[in-house]
Simulated assay, not measured.
Amino acid sequence: MAAYDLYGVKGLTILEAKLKVEESLKLSFDERESTYQGGVYYRFGSDESEKFLLKGNVDPFDGEAVEQKFSEYPVLLYVDMTVRSEEVRCLLSMEFCLLRHELYE
């Protein structure tokens, strides 16, 4: 069963959050830029398997929070199609708050 998790972080810039995730999970993000994603964002993984996406919580078109229910978190980390949700949560637990956890078969 794959999980789709959303984490939020306060008190860190997106670059600081990137470094924390890379250190905690032993991975290396690719820097990307997209108007749709709100400018610079970071990605690790592929569309066919586990994927991490780190971005700001600001919609570039209206300036509102992308995740309105979690507008107090300026930086978001999406963890998609993971089978190690609990492990990731434990490794990120110091600064990152699990905001949403959804399971799919």
Results as ranks from 00 to 15, higher is better:
Gly56Asp: 01
Thr82Gly: 04
Tyr4Glu: 11
Phe70Ile: 05
Cys90Trp: 12
Asp62Thr: 12
Asn57Ala: 04
Glu31Arg: 11
Val40Asn: 01
Leu76Phe: 07
Leu77Ser: 07
Ser28Gln: 14
Glu48Arg: 04
Lys20Tyr: 12
Glu95Lys: 06
Leu53Gln: 08
Glu64Met: 08
Val75Leu: 07
Ser85Thr: 09
Lys69Val: 04
Glu102Tyr: 10
Tyr4Lys: 02
Lys18Val: 05
Arg32Lys: 15
Gly38Gln: 12
Leu15Asp: 15
Ser46Gly: 08
Gly38His: 11
Pro60Met: 12
Ser71Gly: 08
Glu33Thr: 12
Leu12Thr: 02
Lys51Ala: 02
Tyr104Asp: 13
Glu31Pro: 09
Thr82Ala: 09
Glu48Thr: 01
Gly45Met: 04
Glu86His: 07
Ala3Tyr: 13
Arg89Phe: 02
Leu15Gly: 03
Glu72Cys: 09
Lys55Asp: 01
Leu25Glu: 09
Tyr36Asn: 14
Leu12Asn: 02
Arg89Pro: 01
Ala2His: 13
Gly11Met: 06
Ser34Val: 04
Phe29Arg: 05
Gly38Ile: 03
Lys20Cys: 06
Glu31Thr: 15
Thr82Ile: 09
Gly45Asn: 08
Leu6Pro: 05
Phe44Ala: 10
Ile14Thr: 00
Ser85His: 07
Met94Arg: 15
Glu16Gln: 13
Pro60Ile: 14
Val79Ser: 01
Arg43Gly: 03
Ser49Asn: 09
Leu99Glu: 10
Phe52His: 07
Ala17Ile: 02
Leu53Ala: 05
Tyr4Gln: 04
Phe96Ser: 07
Arg84Ser: 10
Met81Cys: 09
Tyr42Gly: 00
Lys69Ile: 03
Ala65Leu: 06
Met1Leu: 14
Arg43Lys: 14
Leu19His: 10
Tyr7Ile: 04
Glu67Asp: 10
Leu12Ile: 02
Lys55Ala: 03
Glu72Ala: 10
Asp80Gly: 01
Ser24Trp: 11
Lys51Tyr: 06
Gln37Met: 14
Tyr78Leu: 00
Leu6Ala: 06
Glu95Gln: 12
His101Gly: 00
Asp59Gln: 09
Arg84Ile: 13
Ser85Ile: 02
Thr35Pro: 04
Gly38Pro: 00
Asn57Thr: 01
Met81Thr: 07
Glu87Ser: 12
Val40Tyr: 05
Tyr73Ser: 04
Glu67Cys: 09
Asp5Glu: 12
Asp30Phe: 10
